[in-house]
Structure formats: C-alpha cells, structure tokens
Simulated assay, not measured.
Amino acid sequence: MTQRYQVTVDVHVILERGADILVCLRDGTGYRDGWYCLPSGHLEAGETVVDCAVREAREEVGVDIDPAALRPATVVHHLSPEGAPRIGVFFATSSWAGEPVNAEPAKCADLLWVSARRLPDNTVPYTAAGISLYQNGVGIGLHGWPAFATQ
C-alpha cells in the first residue's frame, strides 16, 4: 500500500495598514535568522487554519483578530531547498485590536512596516512568494519546485 502524502501546513498573517504590511525579523529560531517573514507558524493538531492565524498573530505580535476579519489571501505549495514540501495558507486583514508589538523577543529581533510591493531584500523567499501571489490576485501558486524555476 502506498503511504499517504504528508505535508507541514504553515499559516501566515498579512497585517495591512494602507499599502504597508507588517514583517518580523527572525532571530534565535535556527531557521532563516536575519530574514523577514510574516507573523506565522505551524498548524497544530486539532486546530483550524483560521484558529492558527488568530493564535499566531496574538503570540507573535500581540494583536487580537476577529476570525471574521481574516480574508483568504493565497495558498502556496512550497518545496524547501532541503526538499521538504509545505503548504502555506496566507490570510490578510486590516482589522485587529491592539498595537503590534514584538511579543516573542527570543524569536524576533524587530518588527517593520514595509510596502507590500517593496519587501526588504532579506525577506524569506517563501514569504515573498506568498505576498507577491496575493498582491497579484493569484489564489494558489507554487514556489521552489524545480519544474517551476521561474517562481
């Protein structure tokens, strides 16, 4: 019998303030430290992607999001440089309670509001791909797969 395909699900939150979005500078995580990403994390067992988005935004940047305020942004089927597949579910919102703060200083060196169209050069490529797909109205895309070298 063939084993079923297993994949890690990542959930990303695009907090929008006008044309700007909030990015977090990774630090002390062991993965892409010194690179910017969105508030994000892994889906936990028994958790919905919406619940995960709300939880990650609270844990990482200290804001409370009403689940109804989350809009589906895009989905990215990503293949890491190490060959590990992932599914990234991206949500966007311009509505939340509280002012974003660095709520995880052991994992984040800084928060930065940036233009969604002009991300820092040191933005995690997978993150940048999801933001670009969202900005261009693409509902689902691929990133990192060899047959799609242009993505």
Rank of each mutant, 00 (worst) to 15 (best):
M1Q: 01
M1H: 06
Q3W: 01
R4Q: 14
Q6E: 15
V7W: 05
V7L: 13
V7R: 12
T8M: 12
D10Q: 11
V11R: 02
E16F: 01
G18N: 09
G18K: 09
G18L: 07
A19W: 00
A19V: 04
A19I: 00
D20Q: 14
D20S: 10
I21L: 15
V23Q: 06
V23S: 07
L25W: 07
L25H: 10
R26W: 03
D27L: 07
T29M: 09
T29W: 03
G30A: 07
Y31Q: 08
W35T: 11
P39V: 03
H42V: 15
L43P: 02
L43N: 10
L43Y: 09
E44M: 13
E44I: 07
A45C: 04
G46H: 13
G46W: 13
E47P: 08
V49G: 01
V50Q: 11
D51Y: 01
C52D: 14
A53N: 10
R55G: 04
E56K: 10
A57M: 02
R58L: 08
E59R: 12
E59D: 14
E60L: 14
E60R: 15
V61S: 09
G62E: 12
G62H: 05
I65E: 02
I65Y: 02
D66G: 00
D66L: 01
P67F: 03
A68R: 07
A69V: 00
A69I: 00
L70K: 08
L70V: 10
T74K: 01
V75P: 00
V75F: 00
V76N: 04
V76Y: 04
H77G: 03
S80C: 03
E82G: 12
G83S: 04
G83V: 03
A84Q: 12
R86M: 13
I87E: 14
I87K: 09
V89K: 06
F90H: 05
F91W: 12
F91M: 05
A92K: 10
S94E: 15
S94P: 03
A97W: 00
E99W: 00
E99S: 09
P100D: 08
N102K: 02
N102P: 03
A103N: 15
A103C: 10
E104K: 13
E104T: 14
P105E: 07
A106E: 15
A106H: 15
K107L: 15
K107N: 15
C108L: 12
A109C: 01
L111A: 04
L112S: 13
L112K: 15
W113D: 09
V114Q: 05
S115N: 13
A116H: 14
R117M: 09
R118V: 06
L119G: 09
P120C: 03
P120N: 01
P120S: 05
T123D: 02
V124F: 08
P125S: 05
Y126L: 09
A129F: 06
A129L: 04
A129K: 12
A129C: 14
G130L: 10
I131N: 08
I131L: 12
S132H: 10
L133E: 06
Y134T: 08
Q135P: 01
G137I: 03
V138Y: 11
G139I: 02
G139W: 06
G139R: 10
I140H: 12
H143L: 01
G144W: 02
W145P: 11
W145S: 06
W145R: 08
P146H: 08
P146I: 09
A147W: 06
F148V: 04
T150S: 10
T150Q: 09
Q151M: 13
